[in-house]
Design a protein around this nucleic acid. Sequence first.
DNA 1: GATGAATGAGTGTTCATTCAT
DNA 2: GATGAATGAACACTCATTCAT
Lengths: 210, 210, 210, 210
Amino acid sequence: MSVEESTSRPAPRTARGARTRARLLQAAEDVFATVGYPEASIVRITELAGVALGTFYVHFTGKKEIFDEVVLDLSRRVRQAMSEASSAAPDRLQAERDGFRAFFAFTAEHPALYRIIRQAEFVSPEVMRTHYDDICSGYASGLDRAMGAGEIRQLDPMVAAWALMGAGELIGMRWVLWEEGGQIPDPVFEQLMRLIEGALAPTPTDGESR
Amino acid sequence: MSVEESTSRPAPRTARGARTRARLLQAAEDVFATVGYPEASIVRITELAGVALGTFYVHFTGKKEIFDEVVLDLSRRVRQAMSEASSAAPDRLQAERDGFRAFFAFTAEHPALYRIIRQAEFVSPEVMRTHYDDICSGYASGLDRAMGAGEIRQLDPMVAAWALMGAGELIGMRWVLWEEGGQIPDPVFEQLMRLIEGALAPTPTDGESR
Amino acid sequence: MSVEESTSRPAPRTARGARTRARLLQAAEDVFATVGYPEASIVRITELAGVALGTFYVHFTGKKEIFDEVVLDLSRRVRQAMSEASSAAPDRLQAERDGFRAFFAFTAEHPALYRIIRQAEFVSPEVMRTHYDDICSGYASGLDRAMGAGEIRQLDPMVAAWALMGAGELIGMRWVLWEEGGQIPDPVFEQLMRLIEGALAPTPTDGESR
Amino acid sequence: MSVEESTSRPAPRTARGARTRARLLQAAEDVFATVGYPEASIVRITELAGVALGTFYVHFTGKKEIFDEVVLDLSRRVRQAMSEASSAAPDRLQAERDGFRAFFAFTAEHPALYRIIRQAEFVSPEVMRTHYDDICSGYASGLDRAMGAGEIRQLDPMVAAWALMGAGELIGMRWVLWEEGGQIPDPVFEQLMRLIEGALAPTPTDGESR
DNA sequence: GATGAATGAGTGTTCATTCAT
DNA sequence: GATGAATGAACACTCATTCAT
């Protein structure tokens, strides 16, 4: 979250400026998601945004900066979608279901998420790590609370969070991103839930140790 | 595996040619892993390989072709490392341990794997999917056998394979790739194993249904 | 005339832009005429024009586009020179003399015309055909009018126009382009005129048939 | 005809060598005619000829040399075709008809002639001039004989030859090369003949002056 | 704030040519 | 004679960035 914004441009001072900036961000998200970072040129972004080339540099210091902003924004939005969805759940199991449902739904609606984040490794490692750290931390604190409540077994919440996010990521890639439908098939979702349930379920051992 | 090699150059007919080709492949792996596909220039690859620029095009039709070959090669090598490691295991649990150990060891030794494959989405989607399909299929057939032997619970082996590979991928990224040591910390590995064990363990339900 | 200008750059919007574009066109004409299309490199053109390499691509989409524009421009200019010269002539014979005089004068002043157009076959067949079609059509309509006025014999004006243009082309190549002086020797011109006169002169047959 | 063959390779000493050389020449003619000199690469020529790249340099010193040989050969063949055809004619008019018929037939069968010669300007000006000089000289001497015999009017045979060849060239380009059929339409041929007849016909003036 | 012309270093790629085998 | 791997200069073209207006 606290990724360096050192050399960034000042926030727009006029309404027109804000509008232009927003249009550029949206265009950038589209372009990055469609053709990838290396192929994405500033000209392309400005053309899609309907502004002149020079205008880009009024609002951003360069290509990497706008990339970072797009990633940060996307990251913020998934996390919010997931936490909103899971916060109302009565128990941990339901929270898992709701959280992952939200994640897959977001993936379906914003394929840009995967496409952009998976390529961030070389473009902007810091921002990529920030994304994974943030999303897993949020997940981990949910697990931590559930562990305190005895709903799930004793385990390192961080390791569990990263492992389960990983499971979700590949499942989402395979059955949401790569499939035509774009919606995760119910049986796949149920299978995943059974696996997660099994992975988190309190064991006899846990019971004895308490 | 069946990725098109349509317009590729003929295999070298002399020993000298084969040597040069191999040097180029190794250099390409290094460069792709170090600076990423977009920044990897042919000049850089040939310089590292110690051959002239034009020589590259004697052996490869272009940048994408050598990228594909590097990915294919890397993919082949992880899969072999994993299957060799797990094939000798007495039971499924041990097979999981050995397989993942091998995977993390490979990751530690060849960080190129992650770096290269995660950026393949835009460069060469087919080859990226091939990699995941292959690695997960291998994993799934192991699970399938174990399921037949009653060692693990009844589940869709494909979904399980993708989910668990995903878990391994993120754990590997976080604790092997991103950490200085390069070796996965034991506690993390053990936690992951407990999760996997839980996810696969035969449930009472499975027991009853049999 | 209806050559596609599909993906051409928009016309310059500033005076500075227009100036640069014109400089590039002039430089291209010189370079194409001097070293031919294959040897003409963009660097050479931009250096001669005194602008940076990248500037070329601000104004033209590529080498072929500027070539087409140069040919089109040259073609327009010869045709105008010829029609201006011949339009004031009192009779057809004088029109022929004036038209060919203008053609040879243009050739002498702009050797680029031949050099560039004769190599256009492979570079840009459409634009080459357009040139010949245009120049011969103009010529043919002059012949047609003269035929209506009974000044010349009955013949297919198109065939005559192409044939006589061809005569002029080779004569111009041999005695204007290849000779030091650059001016067509009077005896050669007179001989050519006698040939043309003979070719067009009303025949007894024509007289009888009328 | 006496174009410098200074740095050319010695004639092949074996039957195999002669065969390879011939295959290369034929391939070169095809390639030059199809894609033009600039696009014609040695690799392409050797591939079409079915020999290895290095073999090319056993037989030719370079690209220009083989181009010259191809042009010279083509030039020799048209001239032979034309002179053979016209030599048997009973009078000059018939000789014109037969000669041009042969020229158009050759054009139809070997479009390479035009395509290659028209682009020779920059590639090899000497050889191009040689071709035109040779073909026009042959034509001119025929006219000269006819003039001596009083069959045609008094004129400079050189100027006439160049002019009429030019007429034939453009007519051939327009109605043989550019048309699907590849055969010159009879009406066009007849029109051309009428023009030539008119251009050459003895005039009253000539009669008086004799 | 917005524009678009100008820049020039950098890219992937081609290709005539050489040469050891 | 024939081969094909190796060379490196050259090319067309791209693009992030600057800047005068």
